[in-house]
Design a protein around this nucleic acid. Sequence first.
DNA 1: AACACCACTTGATATTTATCAAGTCACAGA
DNA 2: TCTGTGACTTGATAAATATCAAGTGGTGTT
Lengths: 230, 230
Amino acid sequence: MSVRLAETQSIRALPLFKEMSEQNFAAMMDLSMLQRFPARAEIIREGELPDFLHVVVEGAVDLFATRDGVETTIDILYPISIFIVAAVVRDEPQLKSARTLMPSQILMVPSQIVRATFEREAAFAHGIVAELAARYRSVTRVLKNDRMLTATERLANWILNSARRAGRDEFELPIEKRKLASYLGMTPESYSRAITALESYGVHSRGTTITVTDRSRLTEFARPILNADD
Amino acid sequence: MSVRLAETQSIRALPLFKEMSEQNFAAMMDLSMLQRFPARAEIIREGELPDFLHVVVEGAVDLFATRDGVETTIDILYPISIFIVAAVVRDEPQLKSARTLMPSQILMVPSQIVRATFEREAAFAHGIVAELAARYRSVTRVLKNDRMLTATERLANWILNSARRAGRDEFELPIEKRKLASYLGMTPESYSRAITALESYGVHSRGTTITVTDRSRLTEFARPILNADD
DNA sequence: AACACCACTTGATATTTATCAAGTCACAGA
DNA sequence: TCTGTGACTTGATAAATATCAAGTGGTGTT
């Protein structure tokens, strides 16, 4: 039921935990579990009360919402990130389901420990605030993009941001196209057409490789919303 | 430059301030301003760094984003609520602009004071966390609605929630229809058609009055997303 | 009372996107 | 190597929504 110290290095480095006292951090890890999941494993389900704060240590996690069997991807998380922070803090039902996109390692910190530590240690509380504020801003940006950009423009912006993050004009799709489509709020068919349309605006796509061949042309087309970083 | 004590009663009662020490609260109010704005006054502009945490004390405030002159309403705030919490906490550019929808009173707390108090007093930090988590969840719900419901379904859900909040089947639109349309992510024309369409599903609209004539029928049509409270 | 303004509504049409239906292609397993 | 599976693509069509263009109606002003 506890996590070995050797495995906590990268977790400790997270903004959320960085400033905590060694003692509180150790106590928290002692009550947490580091669990391995296969690909496509369901981790949490929308509507349930959160038992754990989750940390993606390895792999990738799909956060999605469902309605009548239709699902939409709200966020995709890679190491090292945290999820269902808000539900844990408020002890309210989760708004999203989560499943692994590949074999993954997830650290699970019991909700009560999170809330208790939160009360006890200011440094941890600050970490939670920073995390929440960042996520809040991130969804806000997604909403703005959804409301004010066409599907093709959203894809164009996503490509620009991915290239920027990769530091080069060529990068690999980290996930299936259909999943990316859902994340960008469109169908797989629309994704396919959008990427084809972008060939005229400085993007080349072959297999899972995307190349930005004309950054300024693409930027002009994308007309990014201010601060739309993600 | 300071706020009279008599005016702070309702502010003090906010979850954000409720648990604070009298001393810190007084110090904060001393450095804050309670300002009156006419209708349609611009309060903050997207992209700027936040100088103040704002509290809507009286009136109503429209939080919106702009792109090429087109704007979309992200949230509408009534007393007593707080805005640009995330930007203040992170000291990053605001993602939304704000303007009054009617003559309003706004309490403005300087950002530095917010951050300083946040460092100093755990109770206040907790208040910030609760507020952020609540807002994060709220935008998440809006995004889910946008992604998975049609415009008419979003309106249906909004009506159901409004009626529930009002505690009766008849209520008044608190804002212009065009503004509500924007908030629900549609054009005024689409709003008009949507409300007409809902006449067949237990809704009656005349002027600024909306009446739910058949709640179960409307609920069946709206098929609300789990936990979609706002 | 007449008028002007503006939100709202309604109609016609265009655009965007989803849906349905075949394909095509790559890859894993027999 | 063959074959099946599933993701992806492409085409045809439908649905949802926006846009453009007149109206309509209420309110406040002169």
